[in-house]
């Protein structure tokens, strides 16, 4: 059987797919790839069905060695040392090494046939908040590779916009608790330049900047959220929720990031600048 051995896992590499939708009422979050578009593209480049699992690599550093020839492709953050946005072959016994990407945070490595670990509740995604799904990759892990009946598409290089280290402009709309903040606070929220904090992870992007005052004190009865929710804890500094967000939250959600922009936010690196806007970008 085809498999790959993890030689070095890098800072954080996890198996991901489109997660566990439709189970939030049981307290089970969706999880899955933080940058869904990049995951979908990596699969497409090797002829996989979009639902097969890929590896989400945070800041490069992953090294893998297959026991048989495999076809792989990477998307998302471009790692030096390997071709990007195009399928390529890794011969049996050779080590594939992903370098540190100069821009972007998450690289998706798809292998033809998908990572064939047993699904948990319908998905192979690792949810770092709930602990569901396969463990975070560690050196020595042997990852089974499945098979794909589809042909490898005849593309040379997929033309997509790649993540950059520039300031990111993100489209937002008022969230369910916009009214916990006055117009002045909302204006500060949509004009100031935030910086991505190093405490950010798959749960959410934590932002630092000028604190936003609230109109009301007290607690909110916890309520459901989806990815893209921008929650405002008592600190007045926003948290933008990504794939492993809690199913419900008790702090007011001031805004939602347009779903088309959440993937781009998943590529934000610590220290990078972000500005929210209500202008229509799409």
């Amino acid at each position: 059987m085809t498999s790959m051995t993890v030689v070095e896992p890098g800072a954080l590499s996890t198996i991901q797919d489109f997660g566990r939708p439709g189970q939030a009422s049981l307290g089970i979050g969706r999880s899955g790839a933080c940058d869904r578009g990049a995951h979908r593209l990596a699969n497409a480049l090797v002829g996989n069905h979009p639902t097969l699992a890929s590896i989400e690599v945070t800041l490069g550093g992953l090294a893998l060695r297959p026991n048989e020839d495999i076809v792989v492709a990477t998307s998302g953050a471009r790692c030096p040392g390997v071709p990007h946005l195009a399928p390529f072959r890794v011969p049996a016994g050779e080590t594939l090494r992903l370098g540190l990407p100069p821009a972007g945070l998450r690289t998706y490595l798809a292998v033809r046939g998908g990572i064939d670990v047993p699904p948990v509740l319908g998905s192979r995604a690792t949810d770092i908040l709930s602990g569901l799904g396969p463990a975070v990759l560690a050196a020595g892990d042997v990852l089974p590779v499945g098979t794909s009946p589809r042909p490898v598409p005849g593309v040379d290089v997929a033309p997509v916009q790649e993540p950059t280290g520039d300031r990111l402009l993100v489209q937002v709309s008022p969230g369910p608790r916009r009214d916990w903040f006055d117009d002045e606070a909302w204006s500060l929220f949509t004009t100031q330049v935030y910086e991505v904090d190093s405490q950010s992870n798959r749960v959410g992007v934590r932002l630092t900047g000028e604190s936003l005052p609230r109109l009301r004190e007290g607690e909110l009865v916890s309520e459901g959220m989806v990815r893209g929710a921008v929650q405002m804890p008592p600190s007045g500094l926003p948290v933008l929720f990504l794939a492993d967000h809690p199913v419900t939250g008790g702090y007011p959600v001031i805004a939602y990031v347009d779903d088309l922009d959440v993937d781009r936010c998943a590529q934000l690196r610590p220290g990078q600048k972000v500005r929210f806007t209500t202008a229509h970008l799409h």
């Binding site: 939708p21 439709g22 189970q23 939030a24 009422s25 369910p176 009865v221 916890s222 309520e223 459901g224 959220m225 989806v226 199913v247 419900t248």
Partner: peptide
Amino acid sequence: VLDLVPAGRTILVV
């Protein structure tokens, strides 16, 4: 819909 998420005073319709 993909999901219905009841909570204390709300239901999220996804």
